[in-house]
Nucleic acid binder design. Structure first.
Lengths: 360, 360
DNA sequence: TTGTAAGCGTTATCAT
DNA sequence: ATGATAACGCTTACAA
């Protein structure tokens, strides 16, 4: 028994009257040992409340049971939700999760990859800061046997697994819904084409237009950063233009906050003055007044899939590269006016459009 | 040079023509070594791109540079923000962060403490699942030299550092603001008194009432869980009662979503039909229609303080226990009607209450 | 099947 | 100041 109070494998061995090798064997259950000895060892281990020293284990095995999630911003609802799911799934499989924020700075991402590789994590789930520049650390990690899977954004140049939402389909569906409600001048607020999800959502939007033979007007497309401030500015521009759109498709939850703020500033009501749809379904969207029509990404499934792919690759590093799409879900609520229904104040809705006056 | 391509301290030693002990000494800079040898070692290390094996280091030193954040739910905006801050600060000091969700299950918290202790983390920042039951693992961690600081909720029975918001003051201030606008029947939706923040916010609310000599009415207080669904139900009850309040103070951002949903269901407008204030300032609050008056917790400062306290305790385990309060900030927006201003549709506000009609 | 013993990469305790 | 060398706790050849 060492001074710190923790029994070691030696203590167990001597108490059971066997060698440390035997103890190790029964503990790991690889090779078979005589039942009698096995029982003696187990008994001794229990009596001593033996727990293998994890630090020694990692050292010896040159590997750990850590996985990491490297994302631009854990405060973003999407990543927080994915993180939660990954943590949950990883825990079930005996892994513990590191959280790493890059703030979309590539260098920071590289630093983390380096650190995590040195720390011998079993795997990394990453939403990269730059799709076009797979920094050298990614390859280094791969070479060192770290399993890597990308989510949400592609990691070009690197032959790694990928899981992302059906951005194209989701955007196309919700845009189609708007068009069917009579909107033909629809503004879109998207992120940089440098990122797959932004690009795909914008493309899905445009496809819906084409589907219905509606001409695409360039001045209705605003490309901004992924932050709310950029979207706020873009919305202002869109709606103060000479011939403003009747509806706006906002390509992310983060950006939608800026859009909504802009609407407040302009004193425009949803959906009477302008209709709104947003990609992402933040928790407050259904409580908004009016409830916002959204495209929900299945964060849980994305996280679960990422972990599954990670575990698969940890087991079999040479498995064929995979790319998985996770379906989105359209939540039809009350933020899109049906232009065919004259004089209506509320469009088709899932929620009750009651209009009474009670308290006060 | 070992097979995996990483130079070891031995490689450096032989290349520099010195013993491993000397290499170790110059690398750690504890004892002094002759400048000549020192230079040779440094040169060799650089030539070989030597990086000490972290797994071996942890094993040898019996300690790591990991810290952990153990919280009920990382999806909760408050914890996500705190997590971000902790990660940032920790990274600056050479620590990497583990994220651990307990889902408010005490047993899960204990499991994590056990694991983290075995993994020899340097410190744990925890928002406990149960204030009254400091499970044995906390003490075990403490005994094993893990620094622990609690945030948001107290960890009773355990003599550990603590940092939380000025819940009482924040609640008192915003309630006072409502009263000054003429509200004297104010409903409050709070969480279980078993948790310090809920208790303190409710108490702050009641104190504001007392401050102005307003009688407290029991049926205006609703205690629910911290989830939005509980708050939704509570709001419904509050507002369909015979004599409903003119305003509601919601004690957390999570709960406010349920409250807002309930208002939509009832078709009640803010602030014309009912005024709203919420504790917590989720990112969407300012974009809501109308913008919501909130009490913001300074997540960044809470996180930074927690890390500072953690580092201090890592350095000096016997430092005196500390308890720190972080001030809150009142955001006055447009969700509280001024009952003294007759016929008004919008109360005093920071935002512009314009009412025009543009697009479409 | 079981035991002996040689590492794993570092640090720390000895002599020198 | 420097260099052998013994740990640290575990796994795993290799022998028996």
């Amino acid at each position: 028994m060492t001074k710190n109070g923790q029994a070691t494998i030696r203590d167990v061995a001597s108490r059971a009257g066997v060698s440390v090798a035997t103890v190790s064997r029964v503990l790991n259950g690889k090779t078979s040992v005589h039942p009698t000895l096995r029982d003696r060892v187990v008994a001794a281990a229990e009596a001593l409340e033996f727990r293998a020293n994890r630090l020694a284990l990692s050292f010896r095995r040159r590997s750990t049971h850590f996985v990491a999630l490297v994302v631009p911003d854990i405060k973003n609802f999407f990543f927080a939700a994915v993180s939660h799911e990954i943590e949950e799934a990883a825990f079930r499989h005996g892994y513990t999760l590191f959280t790493c924020n890059t703030s979309d700075v590539l260098d920071r991402e590289a630093q983390y990859f380096k650190l995590l590789t040195e720390e011998a994590v079993a795997g990394i789930v990453v939403c990269t800061a730059n799709e076009h520049q797979a920094h050298i650390e990614v390859n280094r990690a791969l070479r060192r046997g770290v399993a890597v899977v990308a989510i949400d954004r592609r990691l070009e140049d690197a032959p790694i697994d990928l899981v992302l939402s059906d951005n194209f389909g989701g955007a196309r569906a919700v845009t189609g819904y708007m068009i069917e409600r009579g909107h033909c001048r629809i503004g879109v607020i998207s992120g940089s084409d440098d990122f797959a999800p932004a690009r795909e959502r914008r493309l899905g939007f445009e496809q819906a237009l084409k589907d219905r033979g509606i001409a695409h007007e360039d001045e209705l497309t605003k490309i901004t950063d992924f932050r709310d401030t950029g979207a706020e500015r873009a919305t202002l521009e869109l709606l103060t233009a000479p011939h403003p759109p009747t509806a706006i498709f906002v390509c992310s939850g983060n950006q939608s906050i800026g859009t909504l703020r802009a609407l407040n500033t302009l004193g425009l009501r949803i959906p009477e003055d302008v209709s709104i749809a947003v990609f992402d379904d933040p928790d407050w969207a259904g409580g908004f007044h009016p409830p916002i029509t959204t495209v929900e990404q299945n964060c849980a499934q994305i996280g679960a899939t990422a972990v599954a792919m990670l575990l698969r690759r940890i087991k079999d590093p040479s498995a064929p590269r995979e790319e998985r799409r996770v379906p989105t879900k359209l939540h039809i609520r009350s933020s899109i006016q049906d232009l065919f229904l004259k004089a209506s104040t509320e469009p088709a809705t899932t929620d009750r459009p009651a209009r009474s006056s009670a308290a006060s």
